[in-house]
Amino acid sequence: MPAWRPSTGHIRLLCFALCAIPLGQAAWWIASAQLGVNPIETLTHHSGQWALRLLLVTLAMSPLQRLARWRWPLQIRRQLGLWSFFYLLCHFAVYLVFDLSLSLARLGEEVLERPYITVGFAALLLLTPLAVTSTRGWQRRLRRNWKRLHRLVYPAAVLACVHFIWKVKVSEPEPFIYLTVLLVLFAVRLRRA
């Protein structure tokens, strides 16, 4: 009897379900009034945290595929990246609506004057074209340039970590854990090169 192997479709469906958990969590908190004393802060932190975590998971897929010789990591990489971008958009939307009251003038001021906003916003700008060109059509159209373009994910990930480190009031372990993971992922890639 041949061993049962999950199909690509199953793997992608499982990935979708797992990545949707933080979204479901937030929806549940909103519906049941469990966002805590400072609900906007809770949503900002939750969305930002998952954007960064899923970005790191995305970056871990190709080393995982290479080292473990599994096929599935590459089959869900695009989806993971898009989920990360989705949480990043939520993060930015909460900030723009509730912190800045939708004022673009305030946004401009913050981007220019607050380094942690500058780097966070830069990460958003770098990741936007990657999300847009994540389709197969764009991959074909851009050919070799697609790969080059998508290397922007590395500086974006660094900026995202810096954004988090600069935001916290005293040094806390969490952002440094993410930065360490990122550096390990870089090291794995460099070793191959």
Binding site: D99, E110, Y116
Partner: peptide, 19 residues
Amino acid sequence: VDHPRWSQARERRIGELFK
């Protein structure tokens, strides 16, 4: 006078959504 890293011009009163 802003904090070097963030603005002090506005605040979120706990219980309100907008600053």
